Simulated assay, not measured.
Amino acid sequence: MKLFIFFLTIFLTTGLLESSFASDTTKYRVTSYTYDGVELEDLALAENVQLLLFTDPENNPVFENHFINKNSYSSGKIYDFKYEDIPESDSTFASQNITFLWNYFNSYDSDRGSALVSIDFFFTDGLTKFNCKILGVNKNFELIMSGYQLK
């Protein structure tokens, strides 16, 4: 629920001037990265891959897969946002699943497309971890990532 409230606050009340560099951007460090079954963890770590969530100047929610060291990214608006909270129990940490349709463009080749995104967040002792799956809608690809939220 904390994450949903944060997203709702960001998406509805802020307008960021520079998306990727704004202080209200939520950043997630990618530590595991697989593209169509090929493990690219070394590349993800070397290029400091991050997932970013923020709002654009028109207050639209935006998702970005950003290779920080190359200043290369796929970015675009979020549509059909849905979430589910799973409360903490005696045997599990609190978690949340969000899903959305992502209309993206690539900075490195000007390509555009749509993808279905599902992110599972796990709220452990002082650290938020995630698993993310991105499935291409109009292009056939699968991207699977995991990591943790940057503070």
Score class of each variant (00 low, 15 high):
D80V: 00
K77A: 04
P57A: 08
V62N: 01
S107G: 13
W102S: 03
T31E: 14
T31Q: 11
Q50M: 11
D42W: 04
I86C: 00
F105I: 08
G126L: 09
T31G: 11
F81G: 00
N59A: 12
T55F: 04
N59C: 13
K129H: 12
N97R: 12
F21E: 11
I5P: 03
S32E: 11
K133L: 08
E39G: 05
R112Q: 12
S32A: 14
I98H: 00
N131L: 09
V30T: 06
Y73I: 00
D111L: 08
N131K: 15
Y104P: 02
T13W: 09
F63K: 04
F54V: 06
L53D: 05
I119A: 03
F81D: 04
A22E: 12
S23D: 12
A44V: 05
P61K: 06
E18Y: 10
D90A: 11
Q50G: 03
N60D: 10
F81C: 01
S72M: 08
K77T: 09
D36V: 04
C132H: 05
S72I: 02
N97L: 11
S118R: 14
T92V: 07
L40V: 01
N103C: 01
S89G: 15
S91C: 01
S20L: 09
S110G: 02
D120S: 15
D109W: 08
Y108H: 14
V38S: 10
L8F: 12
D111P: 02
